[in-house]
Amino acid sequence: MVTKQQEKSRQTMEELMTSAMELFGEKGFVQTSVSEITSRAGYAKGSFYRHWESKNQLFLQIIEQKLLEYRRARDRRIEDARDLEEALRIIWDFLESMVQDSQWAKVFLEFTIHSVRDTELRTEMRRRQYRLSETIFANLVRRFVTSDYPAEKIGALNTALFEGFMVHNALETGVLSLEDVRETAIALALSKGAGQG
């Protein structure tokens, strides 16, 4: 049974996370301070530090929750996939839904770049729950791969193409659409994973 204190703690966390995402969207991750997050949510800084050690830890929790929502929908659909192409299209639908949430995509990209210079944070970001890694991708398509080409390479190629598109999209060059990248990634994966490797 959830106590009133536990419910209040959960509500405080949710309000702080909402405040943080609003500010990250407006100002960016790096430019947003813990003081601004707590002030917007109507809490003292101590409330923040009762739940997280740092702004990085807060954002990791936001990433985990956000990706969990996306993955639930993807995983239900992929169970019914009949072949590699259908599995890839389901995965790319999942990726497209992330890109369509443009504010989230920009903040996620900024945080990913921010993590590059912090060894501990970079290690944490490579964990499976924080991004579509080559391992997760490989595990999603492995049963559909009919060649001897490693599923991890299919995962790495698709992940690299998607993450490259995220950068391209953030720069607003307008040269490539997600559809261009998606169809190229699927064609490449099918040529490697459904052929003779």
Rank of each mutant, 00 (worst) to 15 (best):
L84K: 07
R122S: 15
F162P: 03
R77V: 05
L176H: 02
R117M: 12
R143W: 07
Q5W: 00
D118F: 06
S147R: 09
S115R: 07
L178T: 02
F108E: 07
H51G: 04
R128A: 13
G195Y: 01
A105N: 00
L16K: 14
K66H: 15
T38Q: 10
Y70A: 14
Q129S: 10
I37M: 10
E53H: 13
F24I: 01
E120K: 15
R50T: 02
S9K: 07
G28V: 06
A185S: 15
A73D: 08
Q196R: 15
V30R: 15
I90L: 13
S97Q: 12
V2D: 05
R82E: 06
E124K: 08
K55C: 09
G28E: 03
R71H: 08
V145A: 05
E69W: 12
E53S: 15
E124Q: 11
M98S: 13
L140V: 02
W92C: 03
G193T: 05
A73W: 01
E110T: 10
L178I: 11
L23E: 10
V116S: 11
R89C: 07
A73S: 13
H114G: 10
S133F: 06
S102I: 05
R126A: 14
E64V: 15
E152K: 01
K153S: 01
K55Y: 11
E7D: 05
S9A: 14
Q61P: 03
E85C: 01
T18E: 09
Y149E: 10
R127M: 12
K153I: 08
F108C: 09
R131S: 11
L60E: 00
E15D: 11
I78K: 09
K8E: 08
Q61W: 08
T123D: 08
L67P: 07
N158M: 00
E14K: 12
K27D: 11
R127W: 09
G174Y: 08
E172W: 10
K45V: 05
L161A: 15
